[in-house]
Simulated scan of single mutants.
Amino acid sequence: MSHGAAHSAGPDEGVVALHPKAPTIRLVIIGLLILGLIFAPWFAYPVFVMKLMCFALFASAFNLLLGYTGLLSFGHAAFFGGAAYFTAHSAKVWGFTPELALLTGMAGAALIGLVIGMIALRRTGIYFTMITLALSQMFFFFCLQSPFTHGEDGIQSVPRGHLFGVIDLAPTMNMYYFVFAVVMLGLLVIWRFVNSPFGMILKSIRENENRAISLGYSVISYKLGAFVMSAALAGLAGGLKSLVFQSATLTDVSWQMSGEVVLMTLLGGIATLTGPFFGAGIVVTLQNYLATSSFPVTILTGLVFMVCVLIFRRGLIGEFYASKLGQKLGYRTET
């Protein structure tokens, strides 16, 4: 037997042995992250952390579509901003409680997602992406001219109200833990969705759509289901943001917002559950601490993005998952 044949018969050198306590270590890491968010208001400005959590949920909702379904949308600002308007209007004008206002925003975002999805999913690739951008811009001009949005002034002084008619959300700490609970619930829904049979089919469609069709799956229906779910969760994030800042403005539905969520997801790592959270943290932190600086935030954000693309092609968390340490802990990326 030749040396080459003997070498090929050996164990696969690319396989990294799983750490014997990998599940426990992963649970400890998750627990520490959750504890960090619980006690964050004592060490950081609570409104800043609430904004970070809202955008983390937004990026995670977008990642559900891009990372696990393989669909790149440039129209997610319509869902995020649309739900912000619906939530703000229902809370201020109709007097809805916070939970009902959020549900109204989610329902509105899901409806917009259904309409846009039914139109855009008739095409694939760059054509799908450009259709979502065009329809999102149409919604932007609708919000600009519609009376209930108050045009360029937006909806201001939105009351946070009383949760279930009992808990006053006007105090910052009460609002913080409400946002924390909703965001954790949203991330749990995304995790369950991704790891369900439906999620497995979405991954198979992403990897080989023709094979999924040959197996008898209605690919369009599954894509539309993922699109609407992503829109609804993006709407939940937008509704939360409108309650946190007590306003809904045209910035929430602008095309720049769609670009920001793409940036957050790519920086953190697509097809990872925690990647969008870290990506949102980077972008929101840069925006917050450079807001009073004379240096253009967009330029620095672009430079950070270029560095990550050149050095961390899978995103920050994606590269960690692909490293030997990440594999030892049982992490994996779907990309």
Rank of each mutant, 00 (worst) to 15 (best):
G161H: 08
I126H: 08
M257D: 01
R206S: 06
T272V: 09
M306T: 06
A6D: 11
A77G: 04
L33K: 09
E334N: 07
G113T: 03
Y331E: 09
V262M: 01
M173D: 05
L286I: 05
L135T: 00
F148E: 11
R122C: 03
L72E: 14
G165V: 00
T129I: 09
K223D: 02
S214G: 02
F58V: 01
M264N: 09
L111F: 06
G161S: 09
A83V: 15
A40W: 09
A232F: 15
V166Y: 02
T87I: 07
G117C: 00
T104Q: 01
L233M: 06
F164L: 03
T69Q: 13
Q327N: 00
E13C: 02
P11L: 06
A83R: 14
F141H: 14
D252G: 11
G105M: 06
R192S: 04
G161C: 09
G281M: 08
N288D: 04
G235P: 13
L18N: 07
V16H: 03
T298Q: 11
N288K: 03
F148H: 11
T129P: 08
L243W: 01
S294P: 06
G238I: 09
Y45N: 11
Y217T: 13
K21T: 03
K21E: 03
T69D: 12
C54H: 07
G259H: 08
G105A: 03
M184W: 10
C308L: 06
S146Q: 14
L64M: 00
A237G: 13
G82Q: 09
A40D: 14
V284G: 05
I131H: 08
L65R: 04
I220S: 04
A226W: 01
M1F: 13
N63L: 00
T265F: 02
S247R: 11
V93Q: 13
F58N: 04
H150I: 12
L290P: 02
S323R: 12
F55Y: 12
W191C: 13
H76K: 06
L236R: 10
S221R: 10
L32H: 11
M1A: 13
I201P: 11
N288L: 01
Y331K: 08
A77C: 11
A56L: 05
M184A: 13
A212S: 14
V28W: 02
V261D: 05
L27A: 02
H162P: 04
L224R: 07
G82S: 14
V262A: 00
M53N: 09
M130K: 03
K241N: 12
L329H: 15
V297M: 08
G161E: 12
Y321C: 14
S254P: 06
L64Y: 02
I112P: 04
G154E: 11
T249G: 14
L57A: 00
S214C: 04
Y127T: 15
